[in-house]
Design a protein around this nucleic acid. Sequence first.
DNA 1: AGTGTATCCTGCAGGC
DNA 2: TGCCTGCAGGATACAC
Length: 280
Amino acid sequence: MPELPEAETIVRGLRPAVVGRTIRGTQVLHSDVLREARDRFTRRVRGRRIVEVGRRGKNVLLQLDGERVVAVNLGMTGRLLPTAGRTPDSSPGAHPAVRFRLDDGKALVFDDTRRFGTVECLDHDEWHRRSRRMGPEPLEAAFTGGVLHAGLRESRSPLRSWLLDQRKIAGIGNIYANEALFLAGVHPQRLAKSVSRNEAAALHRGIRRVLRNAIESGGTTLRDYRTASGEEGRYARRLLVYGRDGESCSRCRTEIHRVVFGGRSAFYCPKCQPRRGARA
DNA sequence: AGTGTATCCTGCAGGC
DNA sequence: TGCCTGCAGGATACAC
């Protein structure tokens, strides 16, 4: 689940704990989360110093010296937890997959119940190529309403599917796609190319607003997500439509609907988000 | 270029 | 209580 706000919250929590630390070694408990051979990964990471922790879309990035980067995609249930104590075998999560031993005696653990997450160590060029295939960062200045509108015009996908496509825009998952569409007053199944300039502007505002507010709340915990300090995110109670089918719309009291397409549930208010564009 | 389906894996809620 | 089914924040590959 972790989407952009959850990854960002983890990054911020991780920074003070791991920046400047050197990775003494790694322990791979479930090699299926690695996107490369275990030996190669272990070799490329050992002895490197973590110079910064960053994010691209939903990915948490450990920038290492020597122009290398460990990219962690959290999948549905991934967590990144620095161990509080020095005890090397204590694990803060129940499903540790990769453990990084740090030079201060502590560790950084990638814990992932379902193991849909991935961990890999890339060099500068490999990471650059990867990053180039991803869409713009929605919170960066370069991502404007005009940029969004131009992207939407090229696609016949339903809006919700478009928003989930990391090649179109980075970091948005099912929760925030649905919330942003509600804030913009646009139906999730509207075709991307049918969106007007004004609707795109409203969607642009909705995307930024929901992502910023969710970061401010430390992300959304439905079940598995935890911050780097193991706490739950506080945004779940602020969700306006996601998971609220059958409840009444916070804006107009109409019953919130759920529809499945693209293999996943979409939630919307039929009155605030008419199938045919009206408002905005 | 779209959509639907299956796949990876575990856990939990709901129905019986 | 237990068993079974379906479903879940993601990403990808496949056939159509």
